[in-house]
Design a protein around this nucleic acid. Structure first.
Lengths: 107, 107
DNA sequence: TCATTAATTGTAGATAATTTACAATTGCAA
DNA sequence: TTGCAATTGTAAATTATCTACAATTAATGA
């Protein structure tokens, strides 16, 4: 069953999350990770963005942001950037699953 | 019971929504409302933003964005801007309630 | 039809935020 | 102390947003 775009009650709002795309400044505010560091992670291909062309401003979706937060968490626990990034992949899959289940239930 | 910041499973993520603050460009992308129109609505005090000082870039939270979407919906149904804005207030309260309930239950 | 008001749209010039690129710095482990 | 990982600094260019003033379009009532 698809998420009904017309539903007015919007118990919660997965459509919103789907459309949610933000710039690097906002990501930095949300996550507490400095913009400089976000660019560095991207440069190292630890994370990626939705940015269309180079030179244009970077864009991130919920998944991107979530990934940064998870990596940050692990690094605070002592992981290196690379190992954290690796570990996060699996965690992301779990989250993806959880979200899908919730979405399926339409809350 | 407070939302536990440390919870790793993050069934869903109300902390995220709380921190979510985006610029006018993103709001425009998300809602489909042109930036020019968003500024106009703000000028008319139909909506508001979190912007700290004038001249700095506008910032919006989830509530702000939701309000715009609701107003847009009503105007599509034929309401005038002012009457839509008025009607939306009540609807916002209902949503606020729903969200609070969900948050209370921790999903 | 004409005037009036509501709603939106256009844009110039100034400012804010982000970009890339090159370089320096810091911390840690061998 | 050498080497690598991770981060940080910043200049100059570019992109995005800002305000302010004005024009345009649409609906309504006289």
């Amino acid at each position: 069953m698809k998420n009904n775009k017309e539903s007015k009650d919007l118990s919660f709002d997965f459509d919103f999350l789907d459309k949610l795309v933000v710039g690097i400044g906002e990501v930095s505010q949300i996550t507490g990770i400095p913009t400089r560091q976000i660019r560095y992670w991207e440069e190292k291909r630890i994370i990626d963005s939705l940015t269309e062309e180079e030179g244009k401003n970077r864009r991130y979706n919920y998944e991107n942001i979530k990934k940064m937060l998870l990596i940050k968490e692990l690094m605070d626990e002592g992981y290196t950037l690379d190992s954290a990034a690796e570990k996060v992949k699996k965690r992301m899959e779990m989250i993806e699953n959880t979200l899908n289940k919730l979405q399926g239930k339409q809350l």
